[in-house]
Design a protein around this nucleic acid. Structure first.
Lengths: 183, 183
DNA sequence: ACCTTTGTACACCGATCGGTATACTTGCGC
DNA sequence: GCGCAAGTATACCGATCGGTGTACAAAGGT
């Protein structure tokens, strides 16, 4: 693992756990096990480090998601998406969605972290649309958007209120109902 | 309007628009039209000002929500909740949910803004459960949680991706389907 | 008229912010 | 064995952070 990778990996972990504004560069470099000088050799500013960290997160997340839904039968793909979210929010390290958090801290839509969040969510939504299409939905876009909304709701509800087994079950139930109605 | 009220009102507006960590006390007091000294006469610290601002937000929001759902027929109450969210996210000043944003910036569940967010969401959820019960749902808690999830999803999706008319329509459609299945 | 309250103006505090300068060590390629 | 890039150590920069001290102006109650 290269030095740059170690830095951006540690940065992502800290930003995710601690927030972007609340994570200073001193702590950041200490967490990565490098000097501030070295950090600034690879990333010209904290802003660009944030950008790189979110880029890394996007790649990791999409790979993780794709792997999960690929393990499900094609006709259950859309429900596997909700299942994936259900697994994710149960993780002890779960701190909400890094991109939703980024959009919250950088409210203006033209700010780079917010734009990256928008792009990330668009890719996820597109993936869900694909799952619905391949599973033979009547109106793939419509049901995909509904499932996407339930997923987003499950993420933030779990973040704010803490993990709740029955809420996850409920999300799966609602998703199943919507999905069955769309086939 | 008392001086303390003007301060907390301005603080809420700035925190909502700008984030908590990103809003400094100097800007805060300037925005409120008072000196920093006066601000600290009423609020012993920025943290306590944040707490007061969130408390104010909670009261304003609940009053607004109750007023909206009270205008709907009892049997349509649960759908009026989604309708309310749909109106809200269409507002030009919409910056997501202040409590979700607070939970994002203060990730640890024991931090006061996070705890206030939890309490706020619990009250909203309880209100939706009541709406479902009064409207004669078979399993009020279950369908209320599903509608709540769709509402949360609509809030964050609109925050991250910007307002999207068809997404709102889709949320209403999904909510209607779930609600009809629960009556 | 006097005193108290309310708020202003503004300088100041130590700490931390993001970011940089300089000098030194370490290890690898040739 | 030499040179060079990578990284360390540490001190520093100006700006801003949350928060305070002090002196003064206005206004109301009695």
């Amino acid at each position: 693992m290269s030095t740059a990778d170690r830095i951006v990996t540690a940065a992502l972990a800290l930003f995710y756990r601690n927030g972007f504004h609340a994570s200073g560069v001193d702590l950041l470099s200490a967490e990565a096990g490098v000097t501030k000088r070295t950090l600034y050799k690879y990333f010209p500013s904290k802003d660009e480090l944030i950008e790189s960290a979110l880029q890394l997160r996007h790649e990791q997340f999409m790979a993780w998601l794709k792997q999960h839904v690929a393990a499900a039968a094609v006709e259950d793909g859309p429900l596997a998406y909700i299942d994936f979210i259900g697994n994710w929010v149960a993780d002890a390290e779960f701190c909400g969605c890094a991109f939703i958090n980024a959009a919250a801290e950088y409210a203006a839509p033209e700010q780079i972290p917010h734009r990256l969040a928008d792009q990330h969510k668009e890719e996820v939504r597109a993936l869900v649309v694909n799952l619905c299409t391949e599973a033979g939905a009547k109106d793939a876009v419509s049901v995909a958007d509904s499932l996407f909304l339930i997923g987003e709701g499950l993420i933030v509800a779990s973040q704010v209120r803490g993990y709740n087994e029955s809420l996850v079950q409920n999300a799966k139930k609602a998703a199943t109902l919507l999905w069955d109605a769309a086939r």
